[in-house]
């Protein structure tokens, strides 16, 4: 029996998040939350690879409402879900997030493969996966587009490189950080899946459930500090030519040459 742990995050649907220009804070109200697509892909990979006797545990750090994302994971086929939720976890940077998830994974006990999305669509950092692997002292494979097989304590994956793919082999335990291939079409849970999910084990762990102190979590455990958030500067209007094509191309070509673009 192998145990797969899938790390997921509930994220706001990014394109709809805006900054309030007066207060320079995020306007989150009314923004729908979704299961991070990269994480859903990682989960679906784990489900694809699991054998009958294997177990898929899905974990997430987030506010109480992140339960919804975990319930979706259970409905899609995960066996057990753990939500890490405590005010002490709030304001975590990628390091404090990785510490929290790594401590939770240690607490779960034996594991064979950790699946994570390469990055979350709100932060886009791609740091948490490798940071968890490093905390657990296990190797990592990032930019994985497909886990090809898991056999006899070995995993084989296809990972994106600068000019194609590498077929990579690793001994278990290992962490894979997955990138969605362009053909990925996220599944919707079935009715049966949604009903089954309600019967599956769901736990919520708070800071008190951990072996390490509160100072390791959230804002206090963070090593980086955001000192300011703001709307990106509005780009200066470009040079747009409306002349007839021949003249417009001439003007554009000369402009690009003069400004050293081409």
């Amino acid at each position: 029996m192998l145990r797969y742990i899938v790390c997921v995050k509930q994220v706001p649907d990014t394109t709809e998040v805006k900054i309030d220009p007066k207060t320079n804070t995020l306007i989150r109200e009314g923004v729908p939350s979704i299961l991070n697509p990269f994480d859903q892909f990682a989960l679906e990979e784990a489900i694809k690879l699991r054998k009958e006797e294997d177990e898929i545990v899905v974990i997430s750090m987030g506010p109480p409402q992140a339960k919804k994302a975990l319930m979706k994971c259970l409905a899609l086929g995960a066996d057990r879900a753990i939500l890490l939720s405590d005010r002490a976890f709030a304001g975590a940077d990628t390091f404090a997030t990785a510490i929290t998830l790594a401590e939770a994974i240690k607490k779960i006990g034996k594991f064979d493969v950790i699946f994570a999305g390469l990055q979350a669509i709100d932060g886009d950092t791609a740091q948490v996966g490798p940071e968890i692997a490093a905390q657990l002292g296990i190797p990592q494979i990032t930019y994985v587009e497909e886990v090809l097989k898991i056999e006899g304590k070995r995993l084989e994956a296809k990972a994106v490189t600068d000019d194609g793919y590498n077929i990579i082999e690793a001994k278990l335990p290992v962490l894979v950080a997955e990138i969605t291939p362009s053909s990925f079409d996220p599944s919707n849970p079935s009715m049966r899946g949604i009903i089954m999910a309600k019967k599956k084990p769901f736990e919520t762990w708070t800071a008190a459930d951990f072996d390490v102190g509160k100072e390791n979590f959230g804002l206090e455990g963070s090593l980086t500090q955001v000192i300011k958030v703001y709307a990106p500067p509005i780009k200066e209007k470009g040079v747009i030519y409306t002349d007839e094509p021949k003249i417009a191309v001439d003007k554009l070509f000369n402009k690009l040459s003069d400004e050293g673009v081409i």
């Binding site: 390091f95 990785a98 886009d124 791609a126 996966g129 940071e131 490093a134 600068d162 980086t224």
Partner: peptide
């Protein structure tokens, strides 16, 4: 912040317990 750099930097940061800002 290339494929390799984004794989490498967080591993170093986590082991040395250092802050890291992406991209």
């Amino acid at each position: 912040a290339t494929i390799k750099g984004r794989d490498l930097a967080p591993r170093v940061a986590s082991i040395l317990r250092l802050g890291l800002t992406a991209d």
